[in-house]
């Protein structure tokens, strides 16, 4: 049975991943920025990728999309359901055929991600026309208006004729989402989609993303540094630090019983109730090293309260791929 037939036979089967990322490595001129990132995404599954700035979250997304900036190279494998060849090894033309059709992406900055000289309706219609999923121009225009209505933009016919500068940040991000979801992708990647938005419109945006992927049973890879945001959207989390996944697990377990000291630190820093005896919020001591110069061995050891001699060697992964930790001294009981 071919992969396409398999996918067709089990469109909802969570055991068949839509996306399989194995040992993904991103490097620039001998310097490794992302190392051995491994995870998979089931149909309709919502996975969060969390970590602070510089941890490699966006690089992971761009590597999967094949949109890494010039000078960065990706290694490992990225497998999309129904595509025989590893995405990192197919030609640019084939990859372009997958982007916007089977892989959709929403970027962080709604203010600059849309073409300022093109009406937004036209920009949405374009993604349909590129992949030939519409009959003609009128069909594309009509479908684009429907997609804008789907992301709950008021008066979509009028909005479609607007230019990006005439829309608010929240409205632009909805346009981006409409574009990313237009062709019913297998995988939707959202890179900090609400970070640039007002808190009041964040919740609506998150709902639209969740509804959008549910309608299309798309797998969602949701990237954020904001734990409360991730917790409302994702069923499963991956914690990234220094270009490596340091912990993975179901959202509830990971947030209530973190095992990696970095995850613990992230949680403590997000807990607005907790203050020390001087009334300050807890922080993780130290900072992400400049230019991604993380220490050898365990990447977190220079900031870790439990770090010692053993940590000069990378601890390796313990537990299952979707529920485990990379630490010599994890908290709590070992995984059974």
């Amino acid at each position: 049975m071919s992969a396409d037939a398999l996918a067709a036979a089990h469109p909802q089967d969570p055991s068949v991943s839509v996306l399989e990322v194995r040992d993904l490595t991103v490097a620039t001129g001998g310097h490794t920025l992302l190392e051995d990132v491994t995870f998979s995404l089931g149909p309709g599954e919502r996975v969060g990728l969390i970590g602070e700035s510089g941890s490699g979250k966006s690089l992971t997304a761009l590597a999967v999309m094949g949109l890494l900036p010039e000078g960065l190279t990706a290694g490992g494998t990225v497998q999309l359901r129904g595509v025989e060849t590893d995405l990192l090894r197919i030609g640019e033309r084939e990859r372009s055929g997958l982007r916007g059709r089977r892989l959709g992406m929403v970027f962080q900055e709604p203010m600059t991600a849309l073409n300022p000289l093109m009406r937004v309706g036209h920009q949405v219609a374009e993604v349909l026309r590129i992949h030939g999923t519409v009959d003609d121009r009128e069909d594309a225009t009509r479908r684009a208006q429907q997609l804008l209505a789907d992301v709950e933009l008021p008066d979509p016919v009028r909005i479609a004729r607007r230019y990006p500068h005439q829309l608010s940040g929240g409205q632009r991000q909805r346009v981006m989402l409409a574009m990313a979801l237009a062709n019913g992708p297998d995988v939707l990647i959202c890179d900090e989609p609400t970070t640039a938005l007002d808190v009041t419109v964040q919740a609506q945006m998150l709902q639209l993303i969740a509804a959008g992927v549910a309608d299309r049973t798309s797998g969602l890879l949701f990237i954020s540094h904001d734990l409360p945001v991730v917790a409302t959207v994702c069923e499963r989390l991956l914690v990234l630090y220094g270009g490596r996944i340091v912990e993975a697990g179901p959202t509830h377990q990971l947030l209530t019983r973190p095992r990696h000291p970095y995850t613990e630190g992230l949680l403590a820093a997000s807990d607005l109730e907790a203050v020390d005896d001087q009334g300050r919020l807890p922080t993780i001591p130290g900072a992400v090293p400049p230019d991604g110069r993380f220490p050898s061995g365990c990447v977190f050891r220079n900031r870790c309260p439990r770090g010692d001699e053993a940590c000069t060697v990378w601890p390796g992964w313990t537990g299952r791929e979707d529920h485990g930790v990379a630490c010599w001294y994890p908290s709590g009981a070992p995984h059974g």
């Binding site: 982007r99 970027f107 600059t112």
Partner: peptide, 21 residues
Amino acid sequence: EDFLRTARAKGLTPARALVRH
């Protein structure tokens, strides 16, 4: 520009993204 990356994320090849956007 970010919008050029968006154009590529929509499925345009680099050359077509540059010409169109």
